[in-house]
Design a protein around this nucleic acid. Sequence first.
DNA 1: TTGACAAACCGTACCGGTAACGTTAATATT
DNA 2: AATATTAACGTTACCGGTACGGTTTGTCAA
Lengths: 344, 344
Amino acid sequence: MTHKTTLKDVADAAGVSINTASRALNHKPDVKEETKERILRIAKDLHYVPNAMAQALKGKHTRSIGVIVDDLSNPFFAEVLKGAEEVAASRGYAVTVGNSAEDPKKELHLVRTMIEQRTAGLLITPTQKDSSFISLLHQEPLPFVLVARRFESIATHAVLNDDFSGAYQAVEYLLRQGYQNILFLNAPTYLWSASQRLHGFRQAMEAAGRAIEPWQIQCCLPTLQGSYEGMREILPTLTAAPDAVFAFSDYMALGAIKALREAGLRVPDDIGIMGYDGIDVGDMISPALTTVRIAKRRLGREAARSLIHLVENGPGNAKQTILPPELVIRQSTPERTQAIKDIQ
Amino acid sequence: MTHKTTLKDVADAAGVSINTASRALNHKPDVKEETKERILRIAKDLHYVPNAMAQALKGKHTRSIGVIVDDLSNPFFAEVLKGAEEVAASRGYAVTVGNSAEDPKKELHLVRTMIEQRTAGLLITPTQKDSSFISLLHQEPLPFVLVARRFESIATHAVLNDDFSGAYQAVEYLLRQGYQNILFLNAPTYLWSASQRLHGFRQAMEAAGRAIEPWQIQCCLPTLQGSYEGMREILPTLTAAPDAVFAFSDYMALGAIKALREAGLRVPDDIGIMGYDGIDVGDMISPALTTVRIAKRRLGREAARSLIHLVENGPGNAKQTILPPELVIRQSTPERTQAIKDIQ
DNA sequence: TTGACAAACCGTACCGGTAACGTTAATATT
DNA sequence: AATATTAACGTTACCGGTACGGTTTGTCAA
């Protein structure tokens, strides 16, 4: 078994001290050019790979950041993660992931693990069912940046989507298309994003002078299955027939569509559908899904950039970056003319 | 700024030596029960978190494994990653991810980073455009397990799906449904999985006594966009009209469906579609997608289990685990009776 | 000649743990 | 009483680097 080559091996082979070898490899001064080149060559020949553990033990921080999300297999979070990985890798950082599964216990456990691993910083989409992990991070202290969500009453760094504006634009658009009875299929409002979008929905309706009936605001688990089952349960209870569904996410829109179709409704002829997120498959299904696109990758990239800045330059005042969403109009929300409405 | 509490702090506070504190925290013998409890309590009060770096530096390996995949936002890999994370987290391991983006250069770079981070082992879905990362891993030596793919000529640990069988079953089923002109929209065959499925396709056709025309085997990039564009290009060049498309993945099936519909074909009335992978959205779209389900999460779990076994018990002979796929019949591949065929 | 100064090294003390090996004092054995 | 044994600690040497401060050698100026 080939003994893992250490800095000492390189130094010995080059006939210099460990110290000199270290300086040469780190391109620091006080090493003759000739010696430096020799050391570098030998290091390469011996396949020397520095031990990040030892470096981290000595220096301030490791070169890896942690990313904790709700659900790794949800394309929204997957894209965010991808963006973060992109930036991290380009800056020489490794990315350690955690899947909280929306379970605050697991979230806390993951944070603890990351602290143990001496992760340099943390990117996290909090479950928002519990904020105790924040005090843990504060007392370390370990820099962290919230992604896509924030706590109303706690000032932290965060990179967010303008969910209020996104929902506002969506509803404004739906009304402009002539929809009269919009059903908002939201996620639980302990999620910042959900409460923001609810806000947006309300404001847009109000601005258009529309009253909101209680049945128009519904809530279910933000998953494919959750929205499918939720929609099935909700449909029979409605006191009026919706002519459009605005879902919290594209995934939820897919689930809703399935439930609507099973109930005998034609999409988009009988009922329009609007999603949120802008996942790739939205454009591949039929009808292509109208949605509000979040710059997911960019969210991840910006967050990673912020975090790495914090790691390398020390803490700063809680700063929030808010990215603008983009309305993406496709085929699932055709125009409703008054004529058609009258016929109905 | 609160100084990060170290083992020494705990020891001092408890009035014992560092060593005793260490033994107490690790539940090792030679510590009086009373002392041990005191130390544990103090450690908790001081929010002591062991430094994994220091432990790793001393011990054999870290408690984190690396996972490198083609594309984090592809639901197939996302599910695999999720499965791996599940097992790793439950065993106290952290998961470091890398996105190779099918780029062998980035793949190599990531492997190098993981080695630097002294990852205990590696899970990897190789790009298969280059196998040089393997020699890097061998000379470390760092245990690794390939996932979903393997190299024909290199014996390594691997956890695989039985892609031959999956494709065979798929084609057999399509033929049983009465399809006469199946188009196989495959991924590049340098991918082990693609070559295996091609094998399965061929064997199943042969077993049914069907000849394979050249146009029936096509290949394009294994992405949503790739299959959409690929299908658009392929369609006009076909010398015969396919009555079914068997795609390498569900994502590719989605892309293909869009291209087919744009070409004026009705799915599934004019042309049947079959995918592979069994991603969740397959069941939500219309028509619900017939597919071959891979136990993705389980793939990730088994791989992580194998790897952790290697890490903790030393290397063993290259062992391959092959998971059976499952045919999932839905609405995208309705029966074609001879009558219908004649009418056409 | 000799002191000043810089270039190019080397020695050594950490970082925060773990583990092999001593040490001490109390109890058990003969 | 003397020796053996053991429970319960403490000492110290690593692990693989980094960084601060010497030490050597050579050049140049006074």
